[in-house]
């Protein structure tokens, strides 16, 4: 009987150890959020969203008088918005069409190769993708630009959209396609008017996750968008982005306080997108 008792204790210990480790994994997230709120909340006010990043001189004067640093990250927010939207415009149509091809012709050699290569892109270091965008766009144009940044981000979004489209379409019952074709509809119209609408939830989730994935990218933007001290809407001019600003703040001792507020903003933005994506995925789950 003592061995039974021993085994029960072993089971319980195992359970509590896994519980403990599971709670340990979420500790960093809460620690980060707590740290960012503690150090960053002071900087977040209306100006934070409407004004561009302050110069190092303004920041130094404010620090000397004990004020909060003036200015905000409007140039970063608008830049991130511009580049993410542009990247989405490039990546969404291509990604969805490739995903359709992969799910419709799953077993051809061409599909195997395409799937393999998209996986490779997904595994590529983002800095390398930045270098490629530099060679493709920055060099020929002769200037760093939002466009180059968008191209780099869109390359990073592509594999995520391709695979989520493929997986969602694969989950749709074959009877749906049969129903469309049996009405004499063309293959194209069955895909566009029957399958894609039915897969909308999954596609949308994939797109949101892809956007939130690239929104925090810094390395590829350093080589492409470079950064800008003012708000820029011109896609062929250098542009700032929130993660780029964080990097710049880090390099300027006078602006170090801005790191926390900008990081807090970026983290909340990305977490919200993730949560929204999860909710949509739950609501639109294919029956």
């Amino acid at each position: 009987m003592s061995s039974l008792k021993y085994r029960t204790i072993k089971d319980k210990t195992f359970f509590y150890v896994t519980c403990f480790l599971a709670s340990l994994t979420v500790v960093p997230l809460f620690a980060i959020i707590w740290e960012l709120i503690k150090k960053g909340y002071k900087q977040i006010n209306w100006n934070f969203f409407t004004e561009s990043a302050p110069s190092t001189l303004d920041a130094m004067l404010a620090r000397n008088t004990g004020d909060i640093i003036p200015g905000g990250i409007a140039n970063g927010i608008t830049g991130t918005l511009l580049m993410v939207v542009l990247a989405a415009i490039i990546a969404i149509p291509i990604g969805i069409l490739v995903g359709i091809h992969l799910s419709e012709h799953p077993k051809t050699k061409f599909s195997y190769i395409t799937r393999f290569l998209t996986d490779l892109i997904q595994g590529s270091p983002s800095i390398v993708i930045g270098i490629i965008a530099y060679a493709w766009i920055v060099k020929p144009i002769g200037s760093y630009s939002a466009l180059a940044g968008s191209v780099a981000l869109s390359i990073m979004m592509l594999p995520l959209i391709v695979r989520s489209t493929e997986e969602t379409l694969k989950m749709l019952p074959g009877s749906l396609k049969e129903a469309g074709l049996a009405l004499g509809a063309s293959y194209t119209s069955v895909i566009l008017k029957v399958l894609l609408p039915a897969a909308f939830g999954g596609l949308f989730t994939g797109i949101l996750l892809a956007i939130s994935r690239v929104m925090g990218e810094t390395a590829p933007l350093m080589l492409t968008a470079l950064g800008s001290t003012t708000i820029n809407w011109d896609i062929v001019k250098p542009t700032s982005a929130v993660p780029l600003l964080i990097w710049e703040f880090y390099n300027d001792p006078n602006l170090i306080d801005m790191i926390w507020s900008s990081s807090l903003f970026l983290l909340i933005l990305i977490l919200s997108l993730n949560i929204i994506a999860k909710q949509i995925a739950k609501k639109w789950r294919i029956q």
């Binding site: 019952p173 749906l176 129903a179 469309g180 049996a182 009405l183 609408p197 039915a198 909308f200």
Partner: peptide, 13 residues
């Protein structure tokens, strides 16, 4: 020639 299948398959959207 219209066709009706084994399982009902109305378009869900």
């Amino acid at each position: 020639a219209g066709m009706v299948f084994q399982r009902p398959n109305p378009f869900p959207t």
